[in-house]
């Protein structure tokens, strides 16, 4: 398989680091190698944060940030217009954005050349499934759909298992599973 080099862009408090961690951990269900690591700085609610995943069928040797991502996930809609999230990516990268807009609108707004753009309204999904805006889990659903790195069912079982282990309430667990499923279905491509 092609090694996936994923860069997450989010804001402190949205669970971006947790999303990268959850994705990494879920790879234990596969024979694949993985890394999940955050970019640590002063931890402030609302400040831009980055996190990374590398997923490969070969042993991963590097221990450094992903600078040439082939998958980019923007967890916070406001970062789409304020952060250069395409930095270091090539034109064949997959870009998954949390926004109510269609990919074509974003492409036009930002004059993006190449790359495959996907959008999903993760805030709306999160609000409807969990009653709060925590867009990390729906973004994981969208990422699974785009990358096909793990079957949806396997991932849902993994999340159910880990969330149960963390003693989350039934409501929170079911809400997150629903959010992942909905984002998986609702992600829009061009």
């Amino acid at each position: 398989m092609k090694t996936l080099e994923i860069r997450w862009h989010g804001r402190g408090g949205q669970g971006t680091v947790t999303a990268a961690k959850t994705l990494g951990e879920s790879m234990i269900e596969t024979p694949l190698y993985f890394q999940a690591f955050p970019e640590y700085g002063p931890e402030r609610m609302g400040a831009p944060v980055k996190a990374y995943n590398i997923i490969s069928d070969e042993k991963i040797l590097t221990h450094c940030p992903v600078v040439n991502p082939n998958v980019i996930v923007v967890v916070d809609p406001s970062l789409i217009y304020s952060e250069n999230f395409l930095e270091g990516s090539t034109e064949d990268a997959d870009v998954i954005l949390n926004t109510a807009k269609y990919p074509t609108e974003i492409r036009k707004d930002l004059n993006i050349i190449g790359r495959k753009l996907y959008t999903v309204d993760a805030n709306k999904i999160s609000l409807e499934c969990l009653g709060r805006v925590i867009p990390n889990t729906p973004m994981l659903g969208a990422l699974l759909r785009v990358t096909q790195v793990l079957p949806l069912e396997t991932f849902l079982n993994h999340v159910k298992h880990t969330f149960t282990h963390k003693k989350f309430s039934e409501k929170v667990i079911l809400g997150n599973l629903e959010a992942i499923k909905r984002a998986y279905e609702e992600v829009k491509s061009e």
């Binding site: 961690k21 993985f34 999940a36 690591f37 450094c64």
Partner: peptide
Amino acid sequence: IISHSYEK
């Protein structure tokens, strides 16, 4: 780099 990174 290692203390806070998840790997297999």
